[in-house]
């Protein structure tokens, strides 16, 4: 049930407990119990809202920054990752295999602010060797959801 519950609330975290219980064929108590377990175990880390900012008047720029760093003895990449992810404007930090080490996702109001973050804060860190910054021009699909998708029932009338 755990997996099914997760897959439902991954798509709709606002669904109410009674409905969840119906869909999963169980009781509300069981659902509540399972949810609190999932939260305590750190499996559910938050209930976020997927927003298509492009449709608002608020300016947002997302940057993807590839960062090469020197790992530290004993702590590997964890230390440097922590120093980066503590900045609130940093949305995500991933350790990546391949051509570079850390992928940093940054959300700011303008290109300039991202550029400033990279030049002032990121590149000046001792263990950072180099950075490469990419800007997102358009989001087609985010968190498994296709943005700007029209859903229309195209099934035609057919018998039988």
């Amino acid at each position: 049930m755990r997996e099914e519950l997760l897959s439902i609330i991954e798509k709709n975290s606002r669904i109410d407990f009674s409905e969840l219980a119906i869909l999963l064929g169980t009781t509300e108590d069981v659902v509540l119990d399972e949810l609190s377990k999932l939260e305590n175990e750190g499996i559910i880390c938050g209930y976020h809202t997927l927003i298509n900012w492009e449709k608002t008047s608020i300016e947002k720029v997302t940057g993807l920054i590839e960062v090469k760093v020197t790992p530290q003895r004993g702590r590997g990449f964890d230390n440097i990752a922590e120093r980066i992810y503590n900045y609130p404007e940093v949305k995500a930090v991933y350790l990546i295999s391949g051509g570079y080490d850390l992928l940093v996702i940054l959300e700011e109001k303008s290109l300039k602010e991202i550029a400033n973050f990279v030049s002032d804060k990121l590149s000046t860190l001792d263990s950072v060797l180099s950075t490469a910054t990419h800007f997102i021009l358009k989001k087609y699909k985010d968190h498994g959801t296709i943005l700007n998708k029209e859903t229309k029932d195209e099934r035609e009338v057919i018998t039988p």
């Binding site: 099914e4 897959s7 439902i8 409905e19 119906i22 869909l23 999963l24 064929g25």
Partner: peptide, 13 residues
């Protein structure tokens, strides 16, 4: 199948 099953439960309820 899982999605159908959820809907089936919803309707039966």
């Amino acid at each position: 199948r899982q999605a159908y099953n959820q809907r089936r439960r919803f309707l039966m309820n």
